[in-house]
């Protein structure tokens, strides 16, 4: 994004942080508190990662050991058979690409459309903005399952079934994303745009050069949610596509649950799960530092 506002952001940061010591307590209590925090995090981490670990280990286990009695945590040997089985059943590379395009395009368009709308709702004091906002929120509360058939009919009437357009356009903007961004935009100090306006900036300039750069964490958060949500979405791509060549990966993996009871190849399913998770973990690793420690929206109100 633009660098124009960077200096001003820095300039208005608060006085340098007081040295750590001032944050209270002796060295002993600090160590104690820190180990408490670490213990809490370890519990969290164990709870969250254990089931995922089971999937990862299962992906490399022989099928006969994925499901066995007594259950194994670690397989007796590691194997890539499940990945061969996966490749034999679904076109992984093609469907991964489809997933990337589907989730990527939805995310990109949602970033643009949602942030424009959120800006209007948060920063322009037009008549009835609360009414528009309220109606949008109300729409969000109609369960998706009730809308699925009418949406399908609409997409079908447009001739978009089994196409990227059908997958993407109905999701090009969404209330949840607008809502999320609005809640962040609204916390940005008013002085920001006033200053820019005094300098003669128009609405689009304020939006682009003042609000957006200061809302990077929120934008990244929304982008991450949209990407992950669409990458993992099941019902939507399954309903909107029938052709395995336009299907995203998660929808393709759904076929692995097997056509009949008792034939589900668990090892292959876990291998497929791993393939589907990996890009998201990598994405998160790339993004997390930025969006959590990114451009902090601090110190502007003082």
């Amino acid at each position: 994004m633009t660098t124009t506002t960077r200096p001003s952001t820095r300039a208005s940061e608060p006085a340098p942080r007081p040295p750590r010591r001032a944050r209270g307590g002796t060295r002993a209590t600090r160590v104690l508190r820190q180990s408490g925090v670490v213990a809490g995090l370890l519990v969290f981490a164990a709870l969250t990662s254990f089931p995922v670990l089971v999937v990862v280990l299962g992906a490399f286990s022989p099928e006969s050991e994925v499901l066995s009695w007594p259950p194994n945590f670690l397989p007796s040997r590691f194997t890539l058979d499940n990945f061969d089985g996966l490749a034999a059943r679904i076109p992984i590379a093609l469907q991964s690409w489809n997933s990337l395009v589907f989730a990527g395009v939805v995310t990109a368009s949602a970033l643009v459309l949602n942030s424009l709308a959120a800006y209007a709702l948060a920063r322009i004091e037009f008549r009835g903005r609360i009414a528009v906002f309220t109606v949008l929120i109300a729409i969000m509360m109609v369960p998706f399952q009730a809308l699925l058939v009418p949406i399908y009919q609409m997409v079908s009437a447009l001739g978009w079934v089994n196409t990227l357009a059908g997958l993407v356009i109905p999701r090009a903007a969404d209330v949840a994303g607008i809502f999320l961004l609005r809640q962040f935009f609204i916390t940005l100090p008013r002085d920001l745009d006033s200053a820019a306006r005094i300098d003669g900036a128009g609405e689009l300039r304020v939006f682009w050069s003042v609000i957006l750069p200061n809302a990077k964490p929120a934008l990244l958060t929304m982008a991450l949610f949209h990407f992950v949500g669409n990458w993992n979405d099941l019902l939507w791509p399954l309903i909107m596509t029938s052709d395995s060549s336009v299907r995203p990966l998660t929808a393709g993996l759904a076929l692995l649950t097997g056509s009949a009871t008792g034939v589900a190849p668990y090892g292959v399913m876990m291998a497929g799960s791993l393939v589907a998770i990996l890009p998201l973990v990598v994405l998160y690793l790339l993004v997390q530092r930025r969006f959590i420690e990114g451009v902090a929206m601090t110190g502007m109100k003082g």
Binding site: L148, V149, Y152, S156, V161, I239, A254, L255
Partner: peptide, 16 residues
Amino acid sequence: NPWNVITDKLLPAISA
């Protein structure tokens, strides 16, 4: 399609 997905979209798909 997975069996449950056939059930889900058979009616709307045939209607359309």
